[in-house]
Write a protein that binds this DNA or RNA. Sequence first.
DNA 1: CTCCTGAAAA
DNA 2: TTTTCCGGAG
Length: 235
Amino acid sequence: MTTKDAGSQTLPVADSAAVPRLFHRLHGALGPQSWWPAESAFEVLVGAVLTQNAAWRNVEQVIDGLRALDWMTPEAILAAPPKALAECLRPSGYYNVKSQRLRAACETWLALGGEAGIRSMETASARARLLEVKGLGPESVDDVLLYGFHRPVFVVDAYTRRIFSRIGLVSPRIGYDDLQALFHKALAPDVGQFNEFHALIVTIGKWYCRPRIPRCEACPLRDDCAHGLARDQRS
DNA sequence: CTCCTGAAAA
DNA sequence: TTTTCCGGAG
């Protein structure tokens, strides 16, 4: 092992056997999370855009609002007056940028042949095409692929980076692709497990591995975590 | 790095 | 009152 491993931002101590072990620890402690709360692949796309740096609680308000207006289709969103659409998105924040991102996503969605068209595409090409949309970054696209189209793509987010860097497996500045690659190497391409694992990570990040004041004492990963163990020694 | 923004928890 | 939220573009 060299000191500079050609761009890999996984720490030298990283052992990928830890990854599946952490999954089973989480699943045993928290149980099934039953994600993603959506009724269609398109609704996953909508939720993915709306939840960008926004609490899901606020996203739900918008989703309910879109349903009430009968706007939960790409055609309806593109037909809606831009001003009215933005107003509808207000509760989820960044409503001006998100309304533009949503329409851009709807245009590409239809251009690709809608849900049926995208379902017929290879995962890699669907991912590449969706990433071209201004406003769809890797996390939003991977949400759609995993939760909307049941493709074995591991979703990475800020929680994943924070939790796994605190545990001591990766650098806190690791990039999206490198972090995703860690999971793809450590796990079999199992859609059910990818679904559950990411959902569990979100729950841990939200309730225990918080940014400023983590609740390490009660965290299910405490015994596997460098950060949690360091806290023990201080007390 | 900054900006985009409202809602609710802490 | 401050922090945080299932990010992404410029």
